[in-house]
Write a protein that binds this DNA or RNA. Structure first.
Lengths: 214, 214
DNA sequence: GACTTTGTTTGACACTTGTCAAGAAATCTC
DNA sequence: GAGATTTCTTGACAAGTGTCAAACAAAGTC
């Protein structure tokens, strides 16, 4: 079980016996997982607490028992989500023994998560957009963005290492570029699920070599 | 007055005298402009028809007189918006006489629109995210994305021309990269309005030269 | 086993939402 | 200016929203 620590919102309101804290956390995670499923399908704007409850084994009252309000729940979901997504390429980075192997593994994992977890990615870009209008979401979104940036930076750094070169862009730039391509793929995936993964691969292959130089 | 043609939704329902069609269109545009202001401030999720009407000189009934429903209005807004945004850099492209001049002019215009029209850009990224969940928005969003891609492609093509080189990436890739950087700037602008424009400039200066080669 | 604490259900509340329709007001037509 | 048409206002509706609180069930404590 992953402890989802709060980056901003007040969390430690319920006294609760120490032995029960785990159970509470377990319920919260279950709720969050259910909510993420609904959110990923409907998007932020169209997801209500009742809809979340309906698509779960709980009633809508339970949601409010474990979360102060809607933002608290969604904020928790975002934080929970981040613990699952930013370490996706670590294995590839650690095991690759050549630049090409790293790129291949990276692209394989990336297209795979594009296909397998489309709703989650759609939700991420939705929530990031929402954070521009809803201040309460901003700290959590910023934290995830930073994690993702570091993730990309680790990959690019290792890639440079393996190809005896150094990155020619800084971390935020590298992240923005790769993220731009990935978001394009996520948006395009609905219209063209067959071709999009290959297109993403092609485009990243065009770009990655340009981000390092001897 | 710009004619906002429908890319997808049925539009020609109202018989209306030919002489009055202009007036109808004028009202529609006025409504759309008002709606865009509200949408840019609140975002798609939090904007209701009544809120739009309140922030305008019209009553909420008028909105429904000129637009079939909410999606029809927002869809119209998106189409109206696109006519204003995709030709922003044309003058720079046409008047620049050197690569450096083009880049300078491009960056100046880009950071200027980032600052001056932040709400509109926030809305665009919001709506593009919404289009992943709301099919009815997709055709219009796709159309705008294509326009923007062509816009970036014109700039890069001219840049290559002026520097006696050729682009090393295709149009969708170039657009995704630049758009990734711009979206990062739009999202970051709220948290850091002072530094963001310069950061965007820096990053684009890092990237642009890499997108062409002799 | 009684009692307290914790967890869950249910139903209600105040409010907002999109939509629509009936009628008033303005505009046009002759 | 009378009558028809277009435009706008107003008020209402049904459905859905977040929130909460009181009743109920379960589990833990002594």
């Amino acid at each position: 079980m992953v402890a989802v620590t709060s980056a901003s919102a007040a969390e430690e309101e319920r006294p609760a016996r120490v032995s029960g804290i785990d159970k509470i956390e377990r319920r919260r995670v279950a709720l969050a997982e259910s909510a993420l499923k609904t959110l990923g399908e409907l998007g932020y704007a169209r997801t209500s607490l009742r809809e979340i409850a309906n698509n779960s084994e709980f009633t809508h009252g339970v949601v409010h028992y474990y979360f102060r309000d809607k933002i608290d729940l969604i904020s928790y979901c975002v934080r929970y989500y981040k613990t699952k997504c930013a370490r996706r390429y670590d294995e590839v980075v650690e095991t690759a023994t050549s630049g090409e192997e790293l790129v291949t593994g990276f692209l394989a994992k990336m297209t795979q998560t594009l296909v397998d977890e489309t709703p989650m990615h759609k939700l991420w870009y939705d929530l990031r957009a929402q954070s521009m209008f809803e201040e309460q979401l901003r700290p959590d979104v910023e934290a995830i963005d930073k994690l993702l940036e570091e993730m990309i930076w680790r990959i690019l750094g290792r890639y440079a290492e393996l190809t005896a070169s150094t990155p020619t862009v800084d971390a935020p730039t590298a992240y923005a570029l790769v993220d731009g391509l990935f978001e394009q793929a996520v948006v395009g995936y609905a219209a063209n699920p067959d071709k999009t993964p290959d297109l993403l691969t092609d485009r990243l292959l065009q770009v990655l070599p340009k981000l390092v130089a001897p």
